[in-house]
Design a protein around this nucleic acid. Structure first.
Lengths: 165, 165
DNA sequence: CATAGTAGCTATGATAAACATAGTAACAAG
DNA sequence: CTTGTTACTATGTTTATCATAGCTACTATG
């Protein structure tokens, strides 16, 4: 898809973010990074992306400084992908997306007894934070590292089915 | 671009959001909607999108229920595009994107004396909210409607230049 | 009443990106 | 010296995006 305009140097902050985050593949990779996925094959299985787009996006994300490669073995050299601070800061965007979807993108009761697709609890105080950006119990602002996510049984099953293939 | 997987029925909330928001064009349209833009030609000028993608995305967004068409005149019938409640709730996503970019996507001093690309103040108390999701003065949670955005001179000039063409 | 706007699209053909599938590189283990 | 593992790259088809032009349904002006 040819780009009429490159937005990386617009003065609009949403435009600049959109250049990176306005891409399905990048969002899926980020999601998995935040769930602790670090290896190529695992990204492929979990995101359903083909190896080409995946490789392309990982390069792009590295170039943008949101992830970095770290070798986890020599002979042959193999790398993992880790979020940088700039990348970790994108958590707020993904979290806002999650909050929106949990509220607006599910049919009633679609997530059964678990209540929602991903339940987040505040690490420091253990409270279920619901769909809030601040802890409803202790009032703290919530960012990456403060939250512990727990997937619903349905979501867990879906992910396991994908990896099994 | 053919889609290997349709994500609108995945159990993952980020996946569901990504189906809508993981698209550059949709993000640009949303940005302009939040700045008060409502008409086809204005979207075209401000986003730089061609009429085809714009028309396509507006239809998609209407189908998803984030915007609705409202006639603003008869003879000939002309429409404006308005955010629904579901659409307004996406503000948090765009705001998170703005916050990330203001912090990570600008060179130092790129926004000159104005300090940032868009300055937001809390309507209720007038405080500059910085890059926070809660008001630093009164502590309130900030959503669409609570904030008043003010563009930097550079951003304003850029937008005016686009509309002039 | 004929031409010139105005706003919101649709049509067309060229280009570029995404897709599925297959294959390669660099080793280790048996 | 064959099989397996992980991380990709190569190839050709399908699909989306792009620029440009044109259409529709009117109003306004001369």
């Amino acid at each position: 898809m040819p780009r009429r305009t490159d937005l990386s140097d617009t003065f609009c902050p949403v435009g600049r973010s959109a250049e990176l985050v306005g891409d399905r593949a990048v969002l899926l990779i980020l999601r998995d990074l935040f769930f602790g996925v670090r290896r190529f094959e695992a990204f492929q299985a979990n995101t359903g992306l083909g190896p080409q787009i995946l490789a392309d996006r990982l390069k792009r994300m590295e170039r943008e400084g949101v992830i970095e490669k770290r070798p986890y073995q020599q002979r042959p050299v193999r790398h993992e992908y880790w979020l940088t601070d700039k990348g970790k800061a994108l958590f707020d965007v993904l979290y806002a997306m999650r909050n929106w979807a949990e509220r607006w993108a599910y049919a009633p009761e679609e997530n059964g007894a678990f209540g929602r697709a991903v339940r987040y609890t505040h690490r420091q105080c253990g409270a279920d934070v619901g769909l809030s950006t601040t802890c409803p119990l202790c009032g703290e602002t919530l960012g990456y590292g403060d939250l512990k996510g727990e997937m619903s049984p349905a979501l867990l099953a879906e992910r396991e089915a994908r990896v099994a293939r």
